[in-house]
Design a protein around this nucleic acid. Structure first.
Lengths: 167, 167
DNA sequence: CGGTTGCGTTAGTCTGACTAACGATGTAAG
DNA sequence: CTTACATCGTTAGTCAGACTAACGCAACCG
């Protein structure tokens, strides 16, 4: 069981090879895969004039109905300071409507438009395709497993999280 | 087609719940887990006056011996423009030595020092602990599986990659 | 010799994640 | 009622990671 391969008769290549202890680190794999996934999504979404956050907000609106910006922030995990810009973009494109809430004049009520719903359907399709590409090397069973493990990890670190409860 | 109608008798919480289609997206899970892992690593490493990149460089030096900055760049995946700063930090701390290469005067030869080796041993321990924490919810078998799947994904996207061959 | 390639370095872009503080408004306690 | 506190939208800014462009220099190739 030679795990790290007696370099003895291997074409030793200290020029390009990454040490095993490095390649194996989950944190490293995660950040690299995350970068890769981000690149993929951004490219794909750019082709339909959209961004990751657009999808998050539209999906949340579709699923749970209208809400204030702070509500959307909680639902999507986007900081409310960043939500401003996202909603500007969505409103510019006519995908959502931002109207003052008569019941609470601090708030804006955000509503998805018909066009927004249409756009969301498109984004869903685009993202499905992109994820197909992203997860191509995994079998369907492995994909489920992978997603489920990621979910468990994430839940564990965000439950009684000492850190980021989306301020 | 009542796609969101089933909320009928659920404790509907449109204020904080994230839509399923969103929570499930691997790209989203990856970026969130990556952020979480980054935070964890950065915090842990900060306590021993180190950074992620420090580990990568030191590990590479230990495993494959001295090399030029460009070589290290290839081995670790750090851009050579960022390598400069990393090596400055490592040199300041006396963990590596940067000497001009007499055989090729464009190059610097980077060598790990005894102190660097000591530091690396410490970092390895720290990272082991941090990863124990990071992957806590997974059984040992699942961890292997998880790492292996990430590796496969990453390999697939970096092999004949149209995109980032570490320029 | 001249052109191309590789090297180290500087500077700068872009994105995502995150903090601080503001004024305006709402809620609760005395 | 008024004083204190919390929440909302917004602006501005920090910080890190990933990445590009371009520079001057040195080496290699034909």
């Amino acid at each position: 069981m030679t795990s790290r391969a007696e370099a003895a008769d291997m074409p030793y290549d200290g020029e390009t090879k990454t040490p095993d202890r490095l390649r194996r680190r989950a944190s490293r794999l995660l950040s690299q895969m995350s970068a890769q996934a981000d690149r993929l999504m951004n490219e794909g979404l750019a082709q339909v004039d959209a961004r990751k956050w657009h999808y998050a907000v539209l999906a949340s609106l579709q699923e749970f109905g209208p809400g204030s910006q702070a509500t959307l922030s909680r639902r999507t995990g986007i900081y409310r300071s960043d939500m401003v810009g996202v909603l500007n973009e969505l409103a510019e494109r006519g995908l959502v409507e931002r109207a003052p809430d008569p019941d609470d004049r601090r708030r804006n009520v955000i509503t998805i438009t018909a066009q927004g719903r249409r756009h969301l359907r498109r984004l869903d399709k685009v993202l499905d395709d992109l994820h197909e590409e992203l997860l191509a090397p995994l079998t369907p069973a492995e994909r489920d497993q992978f997603v489920q493990q990621l979910t468990r990890l994430l839940d564990h670190h965000t439950q009684q999280a000492p850190h980021p409860p989306i301020p």
